[in-house]
Write a protein that binds this DNA or RNA. Sequence first.
RNA 1: GCCGCGGUGGCGGAACUGGCAGACGCAAUAGACUCAAGAUCUAUCGAUCGCAAGGUCAUGAGGGUUCGACUCCCUCCCGCGGCACCA
Length: 987
Amino acid sequence: MSKYNPSQIEKKWQEYWQKNQQFLAKDFSKKPKKFILVEFPYPSGAGLHMGHLRPYVAADVYARFQRMKGFEVLFPIGWDAFGLPAENYALKMGVHPSITTAQNIKNAKKQMLSWGLSFDFSREINTTDPHYYKWTQWLFLQFLKKGLAYEATGVINWCPKDKTGLANEEVINGECERCGTKVEKKELKQWYLKITAYAEKLLEGLKTLDNWPEAVKLQQKNWIGKKTGINITYNFENNRNYVLLHGFNGNPEGIFFPWLKSELDKRGLRYQCPVLPHPNAPTEEEQVSFVLQNCKFDENTVLFGHSLGAVVAMKVAEKLNHKIAGLILAGGFSTATFRDKPRPFHSTFNWEFDYKRIKSITGFIKILSDPTDYAIRIEQGKILQKNLGGVLWESAGEKPHFTSEEEPVILKALSPQIVCFTTRPDTNFGATFVVLGPEHPLLKDRNALNIEEKKWKEIEKYKQKAGSQAEELRTAETRKKTGVFTGLYAINQLNNYKMPVYVADYVLGNVGTGAVVGVPGHDKRDFEFAKEFNLEVKRVVQKDANDIGSIDHIDKVQEEAGTMVNSEFLNGLNIHDATAKIMDFMEAQGYGKKVVNYKLRDWVFSRQRYWGEPIPIIHCEDCGIVPVPEKDLPVKLPNVKKYEPTGTGESPLAVIKKWVEVKCPKCGKLAWRETNTMPQWAGSSWYWLRYTDPKNKKAFSSIKKQKYWTPVDVYFGGMEHTTLHLLYSRFWNQFLFDQGLVSSREPYMMRKPHGIVLGPDGEKMSKSRGNVVDPQIVVKKFGADTLRMYELFLGPHEAQVSWDDKGIVGVKRFLDRVWKWTADSGQRTADSKASEKAERALHRLTKKITEDIENFRFNTCISAFMEFHNEVKDEAIDEASIKKFLILLYPFAPHIVEELNLTLGNKTLLQKEKWPEFDASMIVDKEVEVVVQVNGKVKGKIKVAAGSGEEQAKSSALQLEPVKKSLVNDSVKRVIFVKDRLINLVI
RNA sequence: GCCGCGGUGGCGGAACUGGCAGACGCAAUAGACUCAAGAUCUAUCGAUCGCAAGGUCAUGAGGGUUCGACUCCCUCCCGCGGCACCA
């Protein structure tokens, strides 16, 4: 018998498997199916590394095992070849990414084959293949159709090194997920996928995934970040009195006026709303003097006019001989014509205004103009603003010309409010201030809140400073709290507390409503702010009677145990009951509205790079955003020489005029292609579906084949994809399920993450550290079977392990011994019999391996093989038993066992064998050792027949010398007996 | 700060549902074979006291429950991962 020569036999078997296509998955087989998936790799220039090996080997063991168990197994692989590394590598080498990618794939595939992986390569896919990305583009258009893909301008994460925008998920600790560069903020027009529309469904789906690790589910749950709370609306302190003037042919009971009055009543605000004389045939003289005589004006008056009422208001303001607080105009300042005809009342009004005079007596001016207004055009609002100053709100009313029953925009102009989101309304009796984030929309213009000129200058300065700061600087925890007082006060409806309103950068514009109600007694940040600005600290949750408000130890445990105080009807409740009660109360009173907030943001889907799927959109001046017609898909990447990223926020594709310019599919006019490409994660968001039907030219995959194969039974992959690929692909699958395009709501029944493989020094493997272990060197030196088994032997699949070459020899020695043991058939003949000990050991091993593979405990399988071998190597054994052993070993070390099977003279391949069964009665030896304890201390062991009862064990135990010794002065009071295991005598 | 996971010999790790802690492997030591080295084989291998039989202490620390705790409960320490001025 020759020596075990792995490189020789492994090559032979690998070639045999490929040539004879041994691992093809058959569609619609009568066997039950198993779809075993492992994350497909990026074909990088450096080749596959130990990190790839780990899940591939585990998945391969599992797949080979399931085939023997009688399942039709789909175990596919492909290439996730778009994206930055491929492109950066290509840029560095000066070769087109399509060429380097093809080379890298060839190399990686060679590696995979050398590891003896049993992939079905007939279903191989490649995300950069136009036949594949045609469907990625098509799927994008499905999102567009349903309004879940949209273009918007926003401040996004920008990697200055990779020169592209990033999704929130791609920013890890403020750094680019790919290159580790500090991420910056940049305002860009980008495509987004509306993943937030699926926040709730993604969360709900997690509850159905019983075979996912809790840690993965929890991480996704935290990322989605559902928060239930309440948006509380606060009014500002307001001692104004309003004069409301209705328009032509109107009266105080028409259109929105009754509603407006009742809303002002609700807020306890004073107003006068006169019926103007002769509303059908108004004259300036009559209306203006009527208002001046019948309404009272003082410095707190806000004059409001709608339509013609606005003209009257301006005329009234001209004539007043003292200052008023403000002037609000909703339409009505039109010049001569109405629907291109002279207005009936035009001749009776003087349309010249003394703008200077009006400006000088009014504290603030707001002009509400509406693009949908049929009577007064928006341009006229702009002209008026030019003359009067103030703020122009181009906001649309509920109905054109503000003629709805309810016009919230007008109410907002008259009496602004702040909305604060909180998850802790139970502490609201302790609110003592309000903070607006610098980005808050009410701070866009001084007039929005009518902030004093002097204060406004301070605020503007503060806003500028906050905006120029990088986010992580601004949010650094050690930072002192800063802010500016606005001069305004908000009123807490619960107790009429006058809460000063501040602007401070510790409140972030993109969180909640961008405004916070400050409860310094029960929030650390609010407390720090209150200390900085000498604001009152009120405590409303008390742990016990002695706890009287030392504030330096706000902590959650204490709050959980505390009860409400100083909170009127909440007093005595715990914080949870108080929260529920006050939420209901506030909603009933109209103070606020219960809301659900998510941390999840929409998925930024544009990348300003060359090597990605072009987004299949055409921009037309007349038709706007036009999807590329399906018949024109795929939109292929142009094959060009220059594709360096520009860094300007524009895609390198933008300069390729020949490609960009295109006829609008709708109107035929010259239009422009969208030049951004899709992110790395696009192609992988649906790839497993393609495996079920990889050659389909009519659809991304047929629902019929999906119904046989999906969902994926086990998905092997890395923990690092939990809030990236794993979340994204669940989103796509759920969306496609809702469109009836896929057959299961969740794509993956079971997720099996693996721990990362560290270098021998316990550090992350990296070239710069010089601790990278190349799997190919191990293959060369020890063979793939040793590599596979040693990798599994390192530790539990989910645990982080360090690759230490030192231990490899142990596995190699084991395989050497197996080789010798099997081949040493000299003293065995076909009719030799296995000893009973060996037979029982084999049954035990069968049980152990079967159960451990099913539970993904591969490391203990390897130990069990070694243990078995140590135990039976000197026992009599028959060939049938050896073969059974080889079958058990087959998933782990397929090359050597197939070879050994041949030497035994067997003609059929081991892989065609059925997985062995075990006999439960053969698991335990006939005679077992039972541990004898006295008071829980081991005194010795006795041998009894398996299944012996307590009496027999006790009598044998009492014979033991050490037991006798212990019993000299005592008697047995109690006996604890565990069958076949232990007997404990308590004395 | 919050959430999750973990801490066992010189090292990687076993230990079922609370039942002999340290399986299996590496390294180490001694021996056999060899002119020698390597490979292989045999034996030893948690600490400690003891000539030995045997005893004592040991699963991050301290306490508790139990006949019995690596395993369950409480407090604390350390490491890793996620989130984070998130309201």
